[in-house]
Design a protein around this nucleic acid. Sequence first.
RNA 1: GGCCCGUUCGUCUAGCGGUUAGGACGCUGGCCUCUCACGCCGGUAACACGGGUUCGAUUCCCGUACGGGCUACCA
Length: 493
Amino acid sequence: MTASLIRTRYAPSPTGYLHVGGLRTALYNYLFAKKAGGKIILRVEDTDRTRLVEDAVPNFIDIFNWLGIEFDEGPRIGGEYGPYVQSERLELYREHLRQLADQGLAYPCFCSAERLQQMRDTQIKSGQPPMYDRACRNLSAEESARRIAQGEAHVWRMAVPDKQLVEVQDLIRGDVSFESSTIDDQVLLKSDGYPTYHLANVIDDHRMKISHVIRGEEWLPSTPKHVLLYKFFNWDLPRFAHLPLLLNPDRSKMSKRSGDVAVEDYRRKGTLPDALINFVALLGWHPSDDREIFSLAELVSEFSLERVNKAGAVFDTTKLAWMNAEYIKRESDEELTSHILPLISESAKSELSERLEFTVATLRGGTEAYQSLADRISELAAPLGETDAEMMALLESAEAASFLKEFTAGIEAIPADTWNRFENLADSFKELAKASGKSYGMKGKTLWMTLRAALTGQPHGPELPKLIGIWGRARTLQQLNTAVHYASQAISE
RNA sequence: GGCCCGUUCGUCUAGCGGUUAGGACGCUGGCCUCUCACGCCGGUAACACGGGUUCGAUUCCCGUACGGGCUACCA
């Protein structure tokens, strides 16, 4: 184990669910670390106790489990740099804050929320950038100490130096520099004793030996604060990589306000984890060739930060649907059958029984979601619904009636064991159709549409020779006899 | 408002000075076919704009426009 071991982290705040943007960030961290033989850490950033959501952590663990993304260290699994939940590391942050305070790099601020709000309002009104006016920065050490001793509420702010160019070297964006006078004296420790993100993430990334900080672009503007903190502590900087944002169709930052943004939503809708991962991987990253389908393992070996884009990417569910279909297509009939089994109606299950896999094989073409295939199957196994008048009209002739009678007799004569051999059954069906058709001068479209009308009463549906395999002998004959009856009735009227 | 990032088909993107600007999704035409779907073959559609640099810019530089992000005792 060398000092140069690659270590990345995914550090969500436990606000309830995994966002697809979060998935993308976690995925890139995972891919980057695994490609380099390094480790990925899960760290929970729960320093805002007003936004805590119960069960958020187990939810994360469950959803990553489902996705097949494994962390090397984290809240449940542990590791040598724990604890991995920030609320369990409070003393560590306070110690470090004291270090900064001792060097004059952090100072207590007693300003009330009201004063700060008022200050900001005035600044905005007068066209000034809203920034802390550093009122408490010049308080004497004695006064500060006295007020703290008296128990006055306060936060600790970082003392941002003047007129300094802070450089952020970003693996994706190159060098980005900030003038320190545009950087606010950020709060590092809140009045409730919890650190802010800025303090905690710097300390933890250092203590957890994170080599690469790969996170969303929304963090780029606060990175100079982090760089300054590393300098304050005299620590080596990690490498930074700021990922382009995932966007709504209107190109704004993807948020819960528009459609499904939680991984959970896609799981519920039947999206396959591998398809979701594959799709999300391609949002902002592109392989060196034109392939589109990648397993997690293939992504690991192909991934590189150099091929990550700078511009945001719209999360387009149309292409996700296609991707999902691609993954379904790759499943065997057996796998697919077992996957949709829970989604099929009970009556369809018992109706189709041992013919279910054949049904799946016949109907699976073009399936974009398990649920839709399951629905089609349930529907097909159920009694016929409304019939199409135009189709039924095809049966209303003496020829049709006689033809159907002959054809039905033929079907009835098919040996019982042939009904279990779907290929043979289909062949028999075709032969019978042709033979009976010939007797009445029917062929091609007329022939087949008449049969389709007789069997289903609908213009569309599965291939007829296979349909009878799905239905089985009893249902097929019942349907045909009904049609024969309908036809003779129609002409006698 | 300030700071920062970005800009190739509708969408995801390839391109790293000279290409008929490539692929994928979508849409669409055809083929296959009893129908639908699948599948196969084809089509549609893009370098935001203006200056430079250069023999030559989608590509490099600057500006403009447009879009986005951040601007909390939220992350």
